[in-house]
Amino acid sequence: MALLYHISDASLCSVPQDAPVPLLSAYAQLLLETGIDRLEMPFPVWERLKLAVPAPKAALVLRSPQEREQALREGVPAFFAEGSVFAASFPGAYPDVTVVLSADGRGCLSGVLPDAGRCAGIRAAGFADGMAGDYAAAFAKLRVAVGSLDAEDSRHLATAASLEWLLAGGGAVSASFGGAGGRAALEQLLAALRIICQQPYRLERMPRLRMLFGELFGKPVSAHAPVTGPEIFTYESGIHADGIEKNPKTYEPFPPEDVGRARRLSIGKHSGKAALRVKLQELGVRLDDAELERMNTRVRAESTRLRRGFTDAELLELEKSVHGRR
């Protein structure tokens, strides 16, 4: 099935300047393998990645006319950074460059609107408050002049806005893996399009992307992050786990295999002694009835305090502390 939507990732616009080139290259190539159209990046990042990313798969964020001239020579699609003095002062003067204008929640653009046909396109950036109002009417107004949307996430609605923009017939969106730079979360947008529109984005790349993102940006992604978190398919024994066993769609919007994950049973405050005994035996620990009772009491207390279940490593550490083992 051919992909119906045009999506670019802009997380490379927020990448640390000292990021190693091999790591940058691996991350960029893996992003493209998901099926998205392009990678947006500033010129310094492009200079380091041009051997790994084909020119048609890049989109350069320009900050000067000189960078525009170089992009033109190298055949790389480009657009002016939002608020750039060049975009504001010379709209329509660069027919090969997309102009970025701010959009409010009513679909009104700020700045000088270029003459039709005198620029490569117009992108609307912002729209932070748009989803709180009549966004369908705002989108209808924007689509007359705008080819793409770069929704801003200060109200935590950028992903929803980007999805609705595409479903309403908007031409393209800019997102960002992990929501980097305050944009729509690429992984959530791709998952939604796969579920709702059966678009064949390769979500099985997500675990590896999550790992590279953490290394590249120097901060781990939450284990419970939507789509990418390794714990999102971990279930505590009890009615929840029983429901999953009988019908996974009761709780899961998509199978774990779609995003390169697998289901895992966790122990928490709803677990009984029988489930706890089985889990500990799986981990190589055997307890008598008295030890199991003490362990179950601590499990429920600690799980209530943590407001979640235990990982296997945490469960083993708790067992050692309960019974004085080292």
Rank of each mutant, 00 (worst) to 15 (best):
residue 305 R to K: 14
residue 324 G to E: 14
residue 295 M to Y: 04
residue 309 G to A: 03
residue 323 H to Y: 12
residue 318 L to H: 03
residue 298 R to H: 09
residue 305 R to C: 09
residue 317 E to V: 03
residue 303 S to I: 11
residue 322 V to F: 12
residue 306 L to P: 00
residue 314 E to Y: 07
residue 305 R to P: 02
residue 319 E to V: 08
residue 304 T to M: 12
residue 315 L to D: 00
residue 309 G to M: 00
residue 321 S to T: 14
residue 314 E to R: 08
residue 313 A to L: 08
residue 320 K to A: 15
residue 321 S to M: 08
residue 296 N to L: 13
residue 300 R to T: 12
residue 314 E to N: 06
residue 319 E to P: 03
residue 301 A to M: 12
residue 315 L to R: 01
residue 319 E to R: 08
residue 313 A to C: 04
residue 295 M to C: 11
residue 316 L to F: 01
residue 315 L to H: 01
residue 295 M to E: 06
residue 319 E to T: 10
residue 298 R to P: 01
residue 318 L to T: 04
residue 295 M to V: 07
residue 298 R to G: 00
residue 307 R to F: 02
residue 316 L to K: 03
residue 297 T to M: 11
residue 309 G to V: 00
residue 295 M to A: 07
residue 321 S to E: 15
residue 315 L to K: 01
residue 320 K to G: 08
residue 303 S to N: 09
residue 297 T to A: 15
residue 297 T to Q: 15
residue 301 A to Q: 15
residue 319 E to C: 13
residue 303 S to A: 15
residue 313 A to Y: 05
residue 304 T to K: 11
residue 317 E to L: 10
residue 314 E to P: 04
residue 317 E to A: 14
residue 320 K to Q: 15
residue 306 L to R: 11
residue 318 L to S: 02
residue 315 L to Q: 01
residue 301 A to I: 14
residue 316 L to H: 02
residue 319 E to L: 05
residue 320 K to I: 04
residue 302 E to H: 10
residue 297 T to P: 05
residue 304 T to Y: 07
residue 310 F to V: 05
residue 324 G to S: 13
residue 308 R to E: 04
residue 318 L to Q: 03
residue 295 M to F: 07
residue 316 L to G: 04
residue 311 T to Y: 08
residue 307 R to W: 01
residue 298 R to I: 00
residue 296 N to T: 02
residue 295 M to N: 05
residue 324 G to L: 13
residue 305 R to Q: 13
residue 323 H to D: 13
residue 308 R to N: 04
residue 301 A to L: 15
residue 321 S to K: 12
residue 298 R to D: 07
residue 299 V to H: 06
residue 310 F to S: 01
residue 312 D to G: 07
residue 321 S to Y: 07
residue 310 F to M: 03
residue 302 E to P: 06
residue 312 D to H: 08
residue 322 V to H: 11
residue 318 L to K: 02
residue 316 L to C: 04
residue 317 E to T: 06
residue 310 F to R: 00
residue 300 R to L: 10
residue 317 E to C: 09
residue 301 A to V: 15
residue 321 S to V: 11
residue 310 F to C: 01
residue 307 R to P: 00
residue 306 L to W: 07
residue 296 N to E: 07
residue 320 K to Y: 07
residue 313 A to R: 10
residue 314 E to A: 06
residue 300 R to E: 11
residue 320 K to D: 13
residue 318 L to M: 08
residue 320 K to S: 12
residue 295 M to Q: 08
residue 324 G to I: 11
residue 296 N to A: 13
residue 319 E to G: 03
residue 316 L to Y: 01
residue 297 T to F: 13
residue 311 T to A: 08
residue 308 R to D: 02
residue 308 R to H: 04
residue 319 E to K: 03
residue 298 R to C: 09
residue 316 L to D: 04
residue 303 S to V: 10
residue 317 E to W: 06
residue 298 R to F: 05
residue 306 L to H: 08
residue 297 T to D: 14
residue 310 F to K: 01
residue 324 G to D: 14
residue 323 H to N: 15
residue 320 K to E: 13
residue 312 D to E: 13
residue 321 S to C: 07
residue 300 R to I: 14
residue 300 R to M: 10
residue 324 G to R: 13
residue 321 S to D: 12
residue 313 A to I: 00
residue 308 R to W: 02
residue 296 N to S: 10
residue 317 E to R: 10
residue 300 R to H: 11
residue 300 R to D: 05
